[in-house]
Amino acid sequence: MPRYVLKRIAMMIPSVAGIIIITFILTRVLPGDPALMITGEQALPEFVDKVREEYGFNEPLFIQLWDYMKQLFRGDLGFAWHTGHSVASDFASRFPATLELTLASMAIALIVAVPLGIVAASKQNSIVDHISRVLSIIGTSVPIFWLGLLLITLFYSKLGWLPAPIGRISGNINPPTHITGLYIADSLLSGDLVALKSSLHHLLLPAICLSMSTMAIVTKMIRASMLEVIRQDFMRTAKAKGLSERAVIYKHGLINSLIPTLTVIGLQFGALLGGAVIIETIFVWPGIGSYVTESILSADYAPIQAMTLISAVLYGLINLVVELLYGVLDPRVRYE
């Protein structure tokens, strides 16, 4: 198994290299002159030229790419001029926000989707099943930026139940002591109930918005694979053993139908990272998503490239973990 893991990681190298090259080219194709963005539009042309030279923007593309590769090999992700920090330090300070949002969305999605999918499948064509199907269609088809704005209008503007959708915690409350960087975890660990309440309030809407499509897809997947498993002979055998209906579903049905679902959950992490770009912008969430948006708007190449690279590597690793989990769930899976 360690051999398998190493092999899989080695296999990630070509795709990561491809991603580096493609994002490099794509960022250069984007409209906007970075030198002009750095200096400001009113700057003297000589000054703009000087900046262009200093940052190497006047070099041929392949030289720039080569320099970038060399820099990556040194472990340097570059400098984000629009924040004035290195990309690595920006990432370290912003990643926990995105991680918290993504984990919360995944948790919400699974808490709803798994039971809903199971009940929908075990009571096929019942009311619950119909509701689950309608919700799945809504979840996959509603654009999250629209849903986000709608939820803000309702819960903040109209009802006033939730605080202004800005940031991870209300401005007049101190963030919890930094332990993990996740506000919910930190405020629990340090017993800071004021911070916990405020950060939960801020997290709720963006996490629900972001969870919608994952919730819909996982519900559909669990329902479908559960329906398939329910028709299997060993389910009938379990019933013949004298197990109760519940025991049959949970002991034999659920785990067997989790295997295909797991694949989808792994893929959904990628979708969540993508969705975070939109959601973080709407909710002014200080994470990686809004960082990428800011970087694109200021034509700041280094952070765009670095965040794409990191997301790709993360995505690859998550899917590797999913593959290893197959082996835990299914004894027939062997790694070599």
């Binding site: 002979d233 060993f234 009938r236 004298g242 067997n256 769930l329 004894p331 027939r332």
Partner: peptide
Amino acid sequence: KLKTDMQIVFQDPFGSLDPR
């Protein structure tokens, strides 16, 4: 409870056992 007295062996020995 009566399943302790009445049992059944199924036709398909491949599918009738939980593969996991």
